[in-house]
Design a protein around this nucleic acid. Sequence first.
DNA 1: CTGAAAGCGCTAACAA
DNA 2: TTGTTAGCGCTTTCAG
Lengths: 368, 368
Amino acid sequence: MPQRLKASLAPAVKRVDAPRAAKPATPQASQFPSTAHDVARLAGVSQSAVSRCFTPGASVSDAMRQRVQQAADTLGYRPNLIARSLIKRESTIIGVVLPDLDNPFYASVVGRLSSMLTETGRRILLFRSPATDSSDPVLEDVLRYRVDGLILVSSPLSSTFADECVRIGLPVVQLNRTSMRARVSSVVGDNVRGAARIAEHLLRHGHRRLAYVAGQDGSSTSQERENGFTAALRQAGLTLALRETGHYTQDGARAATQRLLSLPEPPDAIFFANDYMALAGLSVARHAFGADIGRSLSIVGFDDIPMAAWPEFSLATFRQPIDAMCARTVEIIQAQLGDIGVAPQRLVLPGELVVRGSVRGGVVDPLA
Amino acid sequence: MPQRLKASLAPAVKRVDAPRAAKPATPQASQFPSTAHDVARLAGVSQSAVSRCFTPGASVSDAMRQRVQQAADTLGYRPNLIARSLIKRESTIIGVVLPDLDNPFYASVVGRLSSMLTETGRRILLFRSPATDSSDPVLEDVLRYRVDGLILVSSPLSSTFADECVRIGLPVVQLNRTSMRARVSSVVGDNVRGAARIAEHLLRHGHRRLAYVAGQDGSSTSQERENGFTAALRQAGLTLALRETGHYTQDGARAATQRLLSLPEPPDAIFFANDYMALAGLSVARHAFGADIGRSLSIVGFDDIPMAAWPEFSLATFRQPIDAMCARTVEIIQAQLGDIGVAPQRLVLPGELVVRGSVRGGVVDPLA
DNA sequence: CTGAAAGCGCTAACAA
DNA sequence: TTGTTAGCGCTTTCAG
């Protein structure tokens, strides 16, 4: 609501109860939200009394509360949280930065975070981090809003920026990503172990020519999964045969799959850095290359998004404990909110290998 | 950043340049964001000069700009948008209310809205509307944040609340939903026509026992689609054979599909109120009932989310112009922001029937 | 219990 | 061009 008629500034002499800017004759026409002052005037009480009536633990007489309540109702008064946060130094809004809402995993994360944060009266202010560039400019922007906390979903964080957040006492949590250098809390699934479990399963079922489709180079998540995967291969005396990057997009995954399967010696198993890519890859492999998924070609993802379980895909994957991850994230924010300077936590939550029909040895859906 | 040490309030005598609250000895420990005042002091200029340096069109000398810039840099100063919005009466934040981020259509909408709004420096404050109850309590909450505009994605809006928004001059747009009574702008696809096109196609290909799986009763979108569908049937001398409600959820859609296909005389075609439900329904029909999709049973959705085109589903649908819908929505917000009291618009954007393999007469993917 | 007054960090007249 | 000043709407001492 920008262009409110500018009230002609009062002269140097202070005028208590100065009349507000002239309002249009028609009362229903563009008015503006009424203020505590308006309510106070109507109720014939002080403005601070009004404030108290809207403050949980304040001591107000019943009579006062009545008067104020009624005046507030007739004026449609709603406390201005912007003004409140200025003085309370607490905005009740949490900045959430994420790369992409099209990935169901992220969408689900945001939904859960929103629900959980709402329980303590907080809201999400949404920001998108650029896929490739540094997200520092975005974060710079977030800070201007004086958010109470910052959650970076799968988004990068420079250590200088992390330091800045520490300096100003802003709780920050990286979710589904970490930074080696940045001294901030993070909550991630057990990427190394999960990827190793996947590799072991693949090896156990006779796969020898394995490919990895990375997400974004530079993403800790993708790197850890790759590390866990290749480490397990190494342990078996093997190496990663092929490697592509899908940029965490479905287009990227399709292109990567196409390149892999067009090779003279294509892989006999592909591990994608997440389900979102794996689904796209699986689909292309099956329909564009006629691959016999789960037999001549095994496909595995990571996350266990709902669609992975659909019989159309029956995608083997490593389940991330998404609920727990979100819960822990919110808890860390709360904890740091209450007690500044608590040491940053780096949580690694266990997941679970989910073997399905897209890999050898997987349970084929009896209904398929 | 709540518990800044409360500065002991200054005595009645006004003290210019009053010292701030004592800061911890360790400068890197919990400090707080520096203010324009801090910068001014360090640079040896007035606080308003600092403000000017961060105001695009202000007249500031180069010397001044230099001094201030440097001081600001060393202090890591960032203008407090909360404070700014208080005086500018403009928060640069847009409230977005939506029921569910799990539906890819909504997720995509939010992503696009976010991108488009970001171009004019606005951010999204996210709210979830309850699926069933009135969303008025949520909206009540939104208003406390003094958002510059309000976008309701597929969410209900009472006329009393709509009036309230008009009264306070808040731009509101309903996206993918309308209210008969509420006097607010809305942007929707051509639900009636789209549904009619779907019915016509189905009838033309010999279907006679048609079912509709509604979204949410009370949702204008679901109702319009049903109306368009049944109207087209009526025109052909038919009526809707069966009707279920899927509550816009995949579980609901699966249950509805199960009920329909368990009937002694199951439908030969099912029209789901959106793709999100249709995909789930299609999957269940195929795998749990062995339905021959696109032959003995046709399935159609609405929206044309990306997955509908995947060969696994090849879901026939009516494409909603999601980009245009988001763009129009943002434009309306902008327009009302600039000129209060413009008449509410009710846009109905044309869509396009997308015939695919899930219906008779559909193109079967050659690669399938 | 209530009101007066100060001020959160900022912008915007206005005067110099 | 720059500094002074008066608030934006609210919370919070501090008196009474």
